[in-house]
């Protein structure tokens, strides 16, 4: 079953002389429980696709369907965020510096109308492997990897089915990256989550995803599965070039 269906998506910023077409006619489908990767260089529009889905890039056209429900316009209804959540690239920037972990998670749970917030915060911390001693810490008291775990816990709070991962490990050390990628793999297996993961690192996408789309200058040049990628069977010259550079 298709969880996420993106068809002919265009996203642009600015207008007239300054108009930049960030995404041009992108189409792909992600099945429920699948992990789908978007790779490409910076400025290729891969993050913009995620931002358009979540309503962070207001000017877009095309059709996007999440779990059978089409999304429209600039604003997303509150229920949308019970299905789709996003984890951002930089855990140093995506957490409020003056909110403790407890406040960050508690506020999210409160906004989504959950009860037993106390118990749920405790469970979320356990789920992402942090434990209770981190509950009343502030972001500056956490390492990069721990912050990214908090960001993942916040994304998991509304119990979404789709996680949009925007370069979740590119700000982290390789040893910490391994921990976070293992955590994301475990969470997907436990909860049957659907991942749409953006990365510039082909080997990370190769490790995490089943299929991937290669983007360049706002266009998807090729969609292939990871087995083909490993066997160096990319057909588009640009994908081959990327593959060469990351082997």
């Amino acid at each position: 079953m298709t969880m996420l269906d993106v068809n002919g998506l265009n996203v642009w910023f600015g207008k007239n002389r300054d108009r930049v077409d960030a995404v041009k006619g992108a189409s792909f489908q992600v099945a429920g429980g699948e992990s789908f990767g978007l790779v490409g260089e910076s400025g290729s529009g891969k993050s913009t696709i995620l931002r358009a889905i979540t309503g962070l890039a207001p000017d877009w056209s095309g059709t996007v369907t999440v779990n059978g429900t089409p999304i429209t316009g600039k604003k997303r209804p509150r229920g949308f965020f019970k299905t789709v959540q996003m984890v951002f690239q930089d855990p140093y920037a995506s957490l409020h510096p003056r909110h403790s972990v407890d406040q960050v998670l508690g506020e999210t749970l409160h906004l989504h109308g959950f009860d037993d917030i106390d118990g749920r915060v405790a469970k979320l911390l356990d789920d992402v492997g942090l434990g209770q001693k981190f509950r009343f810490r502030y972001p500056h008291q956490l390492s990069g990897g721990q912050r990214q775990r908090v960001a993942i816990a916040r994304a998991l709070a509304p119990e979404p089915t789709v996680l949009l991962l925007d370069e979740p490990t590119s700000a982290l050390d390789v040893s910490v990256q391994a921990e976070i990628l293992n955590l994301l793999a475990d969470l997907r297996a436990d909860r049957g989550l659907t991942y749409l993961m953006v990365s510039h690192d082909l080997s990370v996408v190769g490790h995490m995803c089943d299929r991937l789309a290669v983007m360049r200058n706002g266009e998807i040049v090729e969609i292939l599965d990871v087995a083909a990628l490993r066997a160096s069977q990319a057909s588009h010259p640009y994908s081959q070039q990327l593959l060469q550079a990351s082997l």
């Binding site: 391994a178 082909l202 490993r230 593959l243």
Partner: peptide
């Protein structure tokens, strides 16, 4: 060695990455 082993590799897929 630990750092080298924690890297995901396209040519050598693994289920779990080694943690240092």
């Amino acid at each position: 060695r630990g750092l080298l082993n924690s890297l995901p590799r396209l040519d050598a897929p693994r289920d779990r990455l080694e943690v240092l």
